[in-house]
């Protein structure tokens, strides 16, 4: 009767164990930052894409690389610059003089994990090339649509403070990221630990894959099986509604953000070995999932509004019937 009999889906306990393995592996390189690491992994399991934003040198790229290495699979990095062309990302056809045919040379986007570093430095045209890949999981070059291999996971980083010579991501593109996370400054202990680990070399060189690509796909499938009860849906809808009603909000959270919130919560539940979503998951993920896509009036901060709403919004009744 249960779906477990029909197809082999990861039991929550095993999913939690796999995820713990990934996290542990990443933590060999990243000191502390438990939440950011888990958020990044959540993006991967939820089948979305993650935007990391913080000052340079806070470990954004390192996190992306560590995650990619832990998972195995192809990892490509795109260093975005103003002169980066869309074909530099998607790839292009080249005339093969030997057999007189055009041959498609895939770009860096044809990988399992793509790091788009300093994504706001690319021109909007190039940025939008990433858009189709992220949104649809496919790339169309010269009229031919080519699907991307699963899993496909984009980690984009951007520096939120330096705007000189940048092209800020439009809202539509920001909306494609399932969540945005900030690394945050390290504590003193963490900083000392970082220095200690780097004393005799770079630990990322020793990092090995701990989870196979097949297992990542299994995790992604398991994520879809996690139950989001009607009460959770009610809660998400009322959350979006409450945010929409706030005076400070100019551009409210889209329906897609609600879908992403549910999906991210499903993935988050797996980390704790649960096969159902708790309102706690929603509360925790509301900030990273929602805040980067809200358009705000004046100088109001989206994060403040989301936090206030989450703290005051009543839960749906426990009783279901």
């Amino acid at each position: 009767m249960s779906s477990a009999d029909r197809e082999p889906v990861l039991v929550p306990r095993r999913a939690a164990e796999l995820l713990a393995r990934i996290e542990e592996n990443v933590h060999r390189v990243i000191v502390g930052k438990d939440k950011v690491v888990r958020l990044a992994a959540t993006g991967l399991v939820a089948g979305g894409h993650v935007l990391l934003q913080d000052l340079p040198g806070t470990g954004k790229t390192l996190l992306a690389r560590a995650l990619a290495t832990s998972v195995g699979g192809a990892f490509r990095r795109i260093q975005c610059t103003p002169d980066l062309l869309p074909s530099d990302i998607t790839g292009s056809s080249v005339f093969n003089q030997k057999d007189l045919t055009f041959q498609f040379i895939p770009g860096p986007v044809f990988a399992n994990i793509v790091l788009a570093d300093e994504v706001n430095r690319a021109t909007p045209r190039t940025q939008s090339a990433l858009l189709e890949a992220m949104g649809e999981g496919q790339v169309t070059v010269e009229g031919v649509t080519r699907p991307l291999e699963r899993p496909f996971f984009v980690v984009a980083t951007q520096n939120p403070t330096e705007f000189h010579g940048t092209y800020p991501l439009p809202e539509s593109q920001l909306d494609r990221f399932i969540l945005a996370a900030e690394m945050g400054p390290p504590t003193d202990d963490e900083a000392m630990e970082v220095l200690a680990r780097r004393e005799h070399g770079d630990p990322i060189a020793d990092l090995r894959a701990v989870v196979s690509l097949a297992e990542v796909i299994e995790l992604q499938d398991a994520c879809l099986k996690v139950v989001a009860a009607p009460a959770i849906r009610t809660y998400i809808v009322s959350l979006l509604h409450a945010i929409r009603l706030r005076q400070e909000v100019l551009l409210p959270a889209s329906m897609r953000s609600g879908v992403y919130l549910q999906r991210a919560a499903q993935a988050w539940a797996l980390f704790e070995g649960r096969d159902f979503v708790l309102p706690d998951d929603i509360k925790l993920l509301a900030l990273p999932v929602l805040s980067h896509r809200l358009g705000m009036r004046g100088r109001f901060k989206a994060a403040d509004v989301v936090e206030e709403v989450v703290a005051s919004l009543p839960l749906p009744p426990l009783r279901q019937h």
Binding site: V227, A229, A231, I232, D275, F276, V277, L278, P279, L318, R319, Q320
Partner: peptide
């Protein structure tokens, strides 16, 4: 038990 009931049915 409450969580299991209310959110997992």
């Amino acid at each position: 038990a409450v969580n299991q009931g209310a959110y997992a049915g």
